[in-house]
Amino acid sequence: MRRLLFMAPARRWAEYREVLPGAIARAGIKAEVSPEVPDAEVDYIVYGPGDGGPTDFARFPNLRAVFSLWAGVETVVGNESLTVPLTRMVDPGLREGMVEYVTGHVLRHHLGMDAHIVNPDRDWDNTAPPLARHRPVTVLGLGELGGACAGALATLGFPVSGWSRSPKTLPGVTCHSGEDGLDAALSDAEIVVLLLPHTPETENTMDAKRFAQLALGAVLLNPGRGALVDDEALLEALDSGQLGHATLDTFREEPLPGDHPFWAHPKVTVTPHIASETRPDTASEVVAENLRRAEAGEPLLHLVDRKLGY
Rank of each mutant, 00 (worst) to 15 (best):
K267E: 08
L234H: 01
A150I: 11
G50A: 10
L131F: 00
R12H: 14
E277T: 14
V219W: 00
T250A: 13
D249L: 11
A128T: 08
L131M: 12
N126F: 15
M206H: 08
L216G: 01
D305W: 07
H273V: 13
D125P: 00
L170D: 08
D239H: 07
E74L: 10
V268R: 04
T247H: 14
G104N: 11
S177G: 09
V76E: 15
A150T: 03
V42C: 13
D183W: 01
L86W: 05
L238S: 07
E232S: 14
G217K: 04
L140Q: 09
F57H: 08
L243D: 03
S81V: 10
V219L: 05
I117A: 12
W13T: 12
L303I: 08
A237S: 15
F67V: 08
P159K: 00
S187P: 00
C149W: 02
P299M: 09
L235S: 05
T103A: 15
L186K: 03
F6K: 05
L300D: 09
K30R: 13
G241N: 14
E18M: 12
V193W: 02
V76R: 04
K30V: 13
E74W: 09
E80F: 01
L234R: 00
G22F: 04
V106Q: 00
E295H: 11
W70D: 11
D239W: 07
R88E: 07
V287G: 03
R210K: 15
V160T: 09
D39Y: 06
L194C: 14
M1G: 06
E32P: 01
E295V: 15
R279F: 15
D259T: 09
R225K: 12
I45G: 01
F211D: 03
D91Y: 02
G224Y: 06
I24C: 06
T169E: 15
L145G: 02
N290V: 13
E190D: 08
N62C: 05
G217M: 09
W263L: 13
L235C: 01
V118Q: 10
S164A: 13
G52P: 02
V304E: 13
V19F: 06
P38K: 11
E298R: 14
P130V: 05
R225P: 03
C149M: 12
P21N: 12
R225N: 11
M7E: 09
N119A: 11
P38R: 08
L256D: 07
G48A: 14
A25E: 14
G147A: 06
V42A: 11
E41Q: 13
L301Y: 07
P38T: 02
G226T: 15
R88D: 06
E253G: 05
E36C: 05
I24N: 04
A25I: 06
R135S: 00
T250R: 11
G178H: 06
V46H: 01
A185C: 06
H134F: 03
